[in-house]
Design a protein around this nucleic acid. Structure first.
Lengths: 129, 129
DNA sequence: AAAGATATACGAATCGTTTCGTAGAAGTCA
DNA sequence: TGACTTCTACGAAACGATTCGTATATCTTT
């Protein structure tokens, strides 16, 4: 339930591409870094043992699939990260991200919407609950 | 420049308490988890070798001090985290934090201010630059 | 001075992760 | 069929982080 960095890389491929063979995943990974086929294989086998991936045999191939969701996993990692790096202060983290990021107007608009939802009193009233 | 989790724990003590001896740090750490004195000692020695901590001898004690700043370090960890866990999408991270956090009105207000700064066009004009 | 507490230094065991070499099974092709 | 390629399985090396035992020096206390 707490993937390592390498495992996270693999999960991201599977989230993006859907169920894949070891070769497909390895192909993708080796575009960004040096990694041998058997390394990827071993990692995915371990992840299968750990229950992070499911595996179905199709002929001579094994097709793997992520068993944990992207959002769910990100949330989990995020919680941990806030704790360890920001000593629990989520707001401090948000401020720091925003302060240093170049958000598009589109994104800022969405963000604004979210804030209005969170803080109904402070703004023009939307609708009654 | 990229502290491990244990190192981060120690840094946080030093950031909070200022320059400290091994014993003081260890005292603090052992409140939250099981850790032997020599373990803390060794960690701090290594951090000193790595250049993460400075060390001054006072009598028979060594007084250690963080050589990297808290904000600076958090920013660095944050950048890395956004990359690995959120594939670079800082905004997605912000949304997810905000969606799941109970921010105080005070915090939301600050956040609002920050957003207005970032997005001058979209809101009532503040002042000319 | 002797005993005990407390400091640093250091080597080494342990642990989890990552990496790869090698072996054997199974498919492909000439 | 024989040579090649391409799977999976598996053991083990390599690496970094963490942990601790032990040795030695230094202070404190009686």
């Amino acid at each position: 339930m707490k993937p390592t960095e390498s495992e996270l890389e693999i999960l991201q491929v599977l989230w993006e591409k859907g169920p894949s063979t070891v070769r497909q995943v390895n192909e993708h990974l080796s575009q960004t870094r040096d990694i041998g086929y058997t390394t990827t294989l071993k990692l995915m086998q371990i992840m299968h043992e750990k229950g992070l991936l499911s595996r179905t045999e199709e002929g001579r191939y094994h097709v793997y699939q992520a068993l944990i969701g992207e959002e769910e996993t990100q949330q989990h990692l995020l919680d941990r990260f806030v704790d360890t790096a920001f000593r629990g202060s989520a707001m401090k983290l948000v401020m720091q991200v925003l302060g240093n990021s170049k958000a598009t107007p589109r994104e800022l608009e969405e963000l604004q919407k979210l804030i209005n939802q969170l803080n109904p009193e402070n703004n023009e009233p939307d609708e009654q609950l």
